[in-house]
Design a protein around this nucleic acid. Structure first.
Lengths: 105, 105
DNA sequence: GATAATTATCGTATATTTGCGATATAAGAT
DNA sequence: ATCTTATATCGCAAATATACGATAATTATC
């Protein structure tokens, strides 16, 4: 968030911006969609499904993880990712609240 | 979206990432919240309410506008901003769909 | 017509994001 | 022990984002 003054805003605004930033890229949305579709976790499948290098996908996964939206569990030589139910619900509530009461001039 | 490969993703993913990016900053969330609270539009009030320079607020407003989430109407020497109902509803549907069906492993 | 108020834009500095290849790390298979 | 596979991390280059002050542009007001 380049040179940002995030400290000056409310906790809620900062938390919400963090979630939004995490999903502010088509690749990360594609990842979340794939994880939502299958309840069983995947891993290398994501790399094959996305038009990006392995290292880039790994970076996107790390960002989603650091935002708390997904979790990764080591399973032998691979890693299984899945949505973090609690965080996703929290994000949904945030967005609902923001866009829920719309009144235009 | 720095050096991005956005073209390779679906229209829906790109559109959703655009909305997410627009709200991926505490200041822009604060702006949307203020606009949602009052159905009458505001303008210079935003500058006074935010801990940012006038030019910076103007930039944030331009970003929200280019994402389609708000509209600005010139009213004499000032500009009144308000939420774009249609776009906000669309954004809400996107987020609901993404986080609606959560199944964890 | 000059002045004040409001907003947008320009220029610039700094930080972050995105992407990739190369390399490290870890675990299973031969 | 070596090789293969899967994943993460490092280092780099290029593009964006954030913020500000200075300045333009617009409109009321005097």
């Amino acid at each position: 968030m380049a040179y940002s003054k995030a400290e000056e805003f409310s906790e809620q605004e900062i938390a919400m911006a963090r979630f939004a930033k995490a999903i502010a890229h088509p690749a990360r949305i594609a990842i979340l969609k794939m994880l939502a579709r299958r309840n069983t976790c995947i891993c290398n499948d994501l790399v094959e499904a996305l038009p990006l290098a392995q290292s880039t996908v790994s970076q996107h996964l790390a960002e989603l993880k650091s935002a708390g939206l997904i979790r990764g569990e080591i399973d032998g030589p691979r890693v299984c990712y899945c949505l973090d139910e609690k965080a996703c619900r929290e994000a949904r509530v945030f967005f609902d609240k923001l866009f829920g009461t719309i009144k235009c001039c």
